[in-house]
């Protein structure tokens, strides 16, 4: 157990079961502490995730991604307010990049989320993107699980859309909103970025700006080129001016429709199975690595590096020792 984790437990003075029981009755400090613990990873995190697991799986998880400056945080705020006006509670996980040079991060998404302050039906957590055990997708999924177990009905995950990590997050969400803004380049940009494949709903934000119509037209044209089966979900292209909450209602409607579509077509179950398989694989991998990383591991690493051994035979040797040793 890492020292920080031990402290986290002692500071709260409870075990995983108690912590989950407390976050389930709305104790926000326990929820905050639980998210820290799952972020840190390790045996304590697993115990906590296991205790929370029966209570999660109810939230509508919505990923929101797009280029820096597209207005994601502002849109998240506008959407959260819209959901709140419908009596739905909202958790937010806002991811910002970690500096690759220092490992530190400035997480500034809360600046644009002031309007959500003071509402017990909202919980916002900022997260740095790098240096997470098992990767970013894993860390966000674990944080989402805690918010889900705490009873938040919609959980929004905000990420900068620029790479595999974001695609993985999208895969963990039920519904992915891709935010575009006018004037970000021609329609070829959206083909190469790979965002067409992950978007369930497109939002052209800052739609009061020149060129918004063109961006909408281009996105629709690209979408029409896609091969779709009859009855298959076709991502709507919606417009928004997030600073004035314009368009929020239509976006929330579309996200809600998308969830209903997933449920009616059985895709929700299929996705849940895929997610379950990924979670199991990740848990097995983490556990295996934890058990195998001993002296023999480090000896083998040195011998593989000097080409004395190969990684494949070495892996088998380690596994055989684990199961038969």
């Amino acid at each position: 157990m890492s020292p920080a984790n031990e402290t986290a437990l002692r500071r709260s003075g409870v075990n995983s079961q108690d912590l989950v029981a407390r976050l389930r009755v709305g104790d926000r400090r326990s929820l905050a502490r639980a998210i820290s613990m799952v972020e840190t990873g390790g045996p304590q995190a697993r115990e906590l995730l296991a205790a929370a697991y029966p209570y999660a799986g109810n939230a509508h998880v919505v990923g929101i991604t797009g280029p820096p400056g597209a207005g994601k945080s502002t849109l998240v705020t506008a959407l959260a307010l819209e959901w709140r006006s419908r009596g739905v509670t909202v958790g937010v996980v806002a991811v910002d990049p970690t500096s690759p040079f220092t490992g530190g991060a400035v997480l500034g998404d809360r600046i644009r989320m002031q309007a959500l302050g003071g509402d017990p039906g909202v919980f916002i957590r900022s997260m740095a993107s790098r240096g997470r055990l098992g990767g970013l997708a894993r860390a966000t999924a674990d944080a989402v699980a805690m918010l889900d177990a705490a009873g938040f009905q919609v959980v929004l995950i905000e990420t900068v859309g620029a790479g595999q990590g974001e695609v993985d997050i999208a895969r963990a969400a039920h519904t992915t909103l891709v935010v575009e803004v006018p004037g970000m380049g021609d329609d070829v940009q959206s083909i190469k970025a790979g965002v067409l494949e992950i978007a369930d709903v497109f939002v052209v934000n800052k739609a009061d700006r020149e060129g918004a119509d063109k961006t909408v037209r281009q996105l629709r044209a690209m979408l029409h080129l896609a091969d779709r089966q009859p009855g298959e979900w076709e991502p709507p292209v919606l417009t928004a001016v997030a600073t004035t909450s314009t368009g929020s209602a239509a976006i929330v409607d579309a996200a809600t429709r998308h969830l209903a579509y997933l449920r009616e077509t059985g895709l929700a179950d299929a996705r849940a199975r895929h997610a379950a398989e990924r979670e199991l694989a990740a848990a097995v991998q983490e556990l295996a690595l934890e058990r195998l990383r001993g002296q023999a591991w480090h000896d083998l690493v040195a011998r593989i590096a000097s080409r004395e051994r190969d990684p494949y035979g070495s892996a088998e040797e380690l596994f055989n020792a684990l199961f038969h040793g």
Binding site: T102, G104, V106, G108, I111, Q114, A128
Partner: peptide, 15 residues
């Protein structure tokens, strides 16, 4: 905020 980030900390800036 910048200095703390450069020291490897996670800084939440609220505005």
């Amino acid at each position: 905020a910048r200095a703390l980030r450069d020291a490897g900390m996670e800084v939440i800036y609220t505005g």
